[in-house]
Simulated scan of single mutants.
Amino acid sequence: MSDATIDKLQRRFDAEAASGMHEIFQFHFTDAGDHYLVVDDGTLEVHQGEHDDPSVSLSMSSETLKGIMNGEINGMTAFMTGKLKATGNVMLATQLNSLFPGR
Results as ranks from 00 to 15, higher is better:
Gln48Ser: 12
Gln48Ala: 15
Gln48Leu: 14
Gly49Cys: 07
Gly49Gln: 05
Gly49Asp: 05
Glu50Asn: 11
Glu50Gln: 15
Glu50His: 14
Glu50Lys: 15
His51Ser: 04
His51Trp: 11
His51Leu: 02
His51Asn: 10
Asp52Asn: 10
Asp52Lys: 08
Asp53Pro: 07
Pro54Ser: 05
Pro54Met: 05
Ser55Asn: 01
Ser55Gln: 01
Val56Ile: 02
Val56Glu: 01
Val56Ser: 01
Val56Gln: 01
Val56Arg: 02
Ser57Arg: 12
Ser57Gly: 12
Ser57Asn: 03
Leu58Ala: 07
Leu58Ile: 08
Leu58Tyr: 08
Ser59Asn: 13
Ser59His: 06
Ser59Pro: 06
Ser59Tyr: 06
Met60Gly: 02
Met60Pro: 01
Met60Ala: 10
Ser61Lys: 09
Ser61Asp: 10
Ser61Arg: 05
Ser62His: 04
Ser62Glu: 06
Ser62Thr: 12
Glu63Leu: 04
Glu63Trp: 01
Thr64Ile: 12
Leu65Pro: 00
Leu65Phe: 09
Leu65Asp: 01
Leu65Asn: 05
Lys66Gly: 15
Gly67Lys: 03
Gly67Arg: 04
Ile68Asp: 09
Ile68Leu: 11
Ile68Trp: 09
Ile68Gly: 13
Ile68Arg: 06
Ile68Phe: 07
Ile68Tyr: 10
Ile68Ala: 13
Met69Thr: 07
Met69Val: 03
Met69Gly: 08
Met69Gln: 09
Asn70Ile: 15
Asn70Lys: 10
Gly71Thr: 03
Gly71Ile: 06
Gly71Val: 00
Glu72Phe: 05
Glu72Trp: 03
Ile73Asp: 03
Asn74Met: 12
Met76Val: 15
Thr77Trp: 13
Ala78Gly: 02
Ala78Ile: 02
Ala78Trp: 01
Phe79His: 02
Phe79Met: 08
Met80His: 04
Met80Ser: 06
Met80Asp: 00
Met80Trp: 03
Thr81Ala: 07
Thr81Met: 09
Thr81Trp: 09
Thr81Phe: 13
Thr81Leu: 14
Lys83Thr: 02
Lys83Tyr: 05
Leu84Tyr: 06
Leu84Ser: 03
Lys85Met: 12
Lys85Leu: 08
